[in-house]
Write a protein that binds this DNA or RNA. Structure first.
Ligand SMILES: Nc1ccn([C@H]2C[C@H](O)[C@@H](COP(=O)(O)OP(=O)(O)OP(=O)(O)O)O2)c(=O)n1
Ligand SMILES: [Mn+2]
Ligand SMILES: [Mn+2]
Length: 652
DNA sequence: CAGGGGTGAT
DNA sequence: ATCACCC
């Protein structure tokens, strides 16, 4: 095993987080550290807003505070406030059933998610202002890994007198020996502080769970329901897992898995805990079997993964019936108008467009959706950014083509849903990028992560094989799709998987255009090309796995010093740990600690690469904005702050 | 298997 | 492109 591989692999591993397992005899992973009572575990927070959509409506209209309130989407009550819940109204109840339970129920329409989405990002942003390691789940939940913050606090300001804020699972709050769990106790104080901030700054109440993993934090956050928080001590892991009344209550076990497990005769959590792993693996595969059985034991090592800005924006509408092309086009226009507005405000450039439909069929084989997607030509994507009014008709036109790929309009059709989605969202860095951007000190943007993942967890000598394998897989199963992509304009290739993108970027740099009739995938399989690619991607992997210092759990800022602070929107991308007294020749765009561990030949490569790129970086990109007069019909409002990676996390 | 969203794996 | 998961 090459040294550099060991480094990278090590960083891929999670911290030891083996949770206390009360159950007997099963092949749970061995607990790693063994010894210490509190020391090596993570401290993870989970926040969940109370009756989220209803609460947003109550903030907008305080008169709704004291009445039973439901939020209605079409004919279902998607959620309701706690006044309504006392009448027996539940989430996802039909309007008629809800009105039966509570005739005075006040309903507000909630099909438009704008206000909920905006509030949602304000919450995430406020949490991130305290600690950037925040992962969103849906619109109303956030995980936060505060391990390093807690460790730092205890190190700097050791206290003899720890105590918990809020509930402690299975315990009388007062009587807990908090000093035995200093890290969880501190975690509960932080959770309380953050919930207080959410309330004072945004007027929102929430629940929180404090535990050593995402799974347990999430499970325990619901132990005391509105506007409260609960800490789970390790010794009660078995209890909270045991309190679950069905496998479906385990996050990660959904409808399908639940049904498959039922077919295997498994109903209770205990059944899954003790089921023969090999038998489980037959249904779910080795890795998945282990994962869900671990969940049943309360073991979850998955890291808190910062969410960043969304990967896709979509808009949809359901309806009784659309059966004419005219109606279809009108609906397409409406959806796209709204989506384009959101995309424009986002500022990134969409490079993929997808149209999804649902067809009517009575007593459906539980209705599935069908979709077609295509790349968005660059010139149209740019009009979306600039807000040109030309974007709408051109995308409608593309949408109609996709529609015809889905529906044979010479026969009758009956739609009940349409969805439009922009994905493959390119930030400025991604669009301006040439091959040079791969060597920048900035951590790779999410667009490029797939490539770095592969290369980082794989030895170089294995990479060739893997690459060929991946290519063959893509080619065999998606060849028709890729053929279609290649048929179109060359720019179209930008929408493909990052592996493809890297290739294309290089080609365009060299000024080579792809012959449009080139139906086969270009010479991807040629060893020379592959070898050329391995080196750069390997380098980016080195950067990738050294998180920017500001985004590591330890880095924090005081809530009270900078509440809702106006952070540099690029702040998260400025890595650079201060020098740790290592190799003097370390290039400034590489973490010195990593650099010093690399084998000499790789150090050489990085150094020479840096020297070559340095002058090049000074040269402004030749982004000649064609003369004065473009024939833009009209660009709306703000020039869409394109470069802001985190406009989603700004105050207001 | 309801509404209107999101994520990642295959 | 679909499936499975989450809210
Ligand atoms: N299938 C679902 C589940 C949830 N939501 C929306 C409505 C909820 O308001 C919000 C948050 O979901 P929760 O499950 O957290 O429910 P609430 O926040 O409404 O209530 P609670 O106080 O129980 O958390 O997500 C939705 O639209 N469709
Ligand atoms: Mn929730
Ligand atoms: Mn909630």
């Amino acid at each position: 095993c090459a040294p550099e591989l060991c480094i990278l692999l090590k960083m891929d591993e999670d911290e030891d987080d083996a949770d206390w397992d009360t159950s007997s005899g099963s092949s749970a992973p061995a607990s790693t550290g063994g010894g210490c009572s509190d020391g090596s575990r993570r401290v993870v927070l989970h926040f969940d807003l109370d009756c989220f959509y209803a609460q947003v409506e109550m903030v907008r209209n305080p008169a709704l505070r004291d009445v039973p309130l439901g939020v209605q989407q079409k004919y279902i009550v998607v959620t309701c406030n706690y006044v309504a819940r006392e009448y027996g109204v539940t989430k996802l109840m039909s309007v008629t059933a809800a009105k039966e339970k509570c005739p005075q129920l006040v309903l507000v329409k909630g099909e438009d998610l704008t206000h909920y989405r905006e509030t949602s990002y304000k919450v995430t942003e406020l949490l991130m202002s305290y600690c950037p390691l925040v992962e969103r789940l849906g619109f109303d939940e956030n995980f936060m890994d505060i391990t390093e913050i807690v460790n730092g606090k205890i190190r700097e300001a050791p206290v003899t007198d720890y105590c918990f804020s809020g509930h402690v699972y299975n315990c009388q709050a007062a009587g807990v020996r908090a000093s035995e769990y200093p890290r969880l106790a501190v975690g509960s104080q932080i959770a309380a502080e953050l919930r207080g901030a959410l309330h004072s700054r945004l007027g929102l109440t929430s629940c929180a769970g404090i535990a050593s993993s995402k799974l347990l934090a999430k499970l325990v956050s619901g132990a005391h329901k509105p506007n409260q928080q609960t800490t789970l001590l390790p010794k009660y892991t078995g209890d909270i897992i045991g309190s679950l009344t069905g496998l479906r209550q385990i996050p990660g076990i959904g409808y399908r898995t639940g049904e498959k497990l039922k077919a295997l005769g498994l109903l209770a959590v205990r059944d899954l805990q003790v089921f023969h792993l090999a038998a489980l693996a037959k249904e779910f595969g080795e890795a998945n079997a282990q994962r869900i059985q671990n969940l049943a034991h309360g073991i979850d090592e998955s890291p808190v993964t910062p969410s960043g800005p969304p990967q896709s924006l979509s808009d949809e509408d359901s309806f009784k019936e659309i059966s004419t092309v005219t109606e279809t086009v009108k609906k397409l226009e409406d959806l796209l108008t709204s989506l384009l507005e959101r995309m424009h405000k986002d500022g990134r450039q969409p490079s993929t467009f997808r149209l999804t439909i649902r067809r009517f069929s009575s007593t459906d084989r539980w209705f599935s959706r069908e979709s077609r997607q295509c790349p968005i030509p660059i010139h149209i994507g740019q009009k979306v950014i600039s807000g040109s009014s030309e974007a709408l008709p051109q995308l409608v036109s593309i949408g109609i083509k996709l529609f015809h790929k889905l529906i044979d309009t010479s026969a009758p059709f009956h739609l009940t849903l349409m969805n439009v989605c922009f994905s493959n969202l390119l930030s400025r860095r991604d669009t301006k990028g040439s091959i040079k951007s791969f060597f920048t000190a900035k951590s790779p943007s999410r667009q490029d992560k797939k490539v770095t993942r592969v290369s980082s967890s794989t030895a170089r000598n294995v990479f060739f094989f893997l690459f060929v394998f991946i290519y063959l897989f893509i080619y065999l199963f998606f060849s028709s799709l890729l053929d279609e992509i290649v048929q179109h304009k060359p720019s179209v290739l930008l929408e493909a998987v990052p592996i493809v993108r890297l290739k294309v970027v290089e080609r365009r740099h060299k000024g080579e255009m792809l012959p449009s009739q080139q139906k086969k995938i270009p010479d991807f399989l040629l060893p020379e090309h592959i070898q050329k690619e391995i080196i750069p991607t390997f380098h980016t992997a080195v950067f990738q796995h050294i998180p920017p210092v500001e985004s590591r759990p330890g880095a924090m800022c005081s809530l009270h010093d900078h509440p809702l602070s106006t952070r540099d929107t690029e702040g998260l991308n400025v890595p650079r740990p201060s020098s740790l007294g290592v190799n003097a020749a370390c290039p400034p765009n590489v973490d010195p600690r990593v650099f010093s561990e690399l084998p000499p030949d790789l150090q050489q490569e990085l150094l020479s690469e840096w020297k070559q790129q340095k002058p090049v970086l000074k040269i402004p990109s030749k982004k000649v904005v064609k003369g004065g007069s473009t024939k833009e019909k009209k660009t709306t409002g703000q020039p869409s702050q394109a470069n802001n990676l985190l406009k989603y996390f700004k105050p207001n």
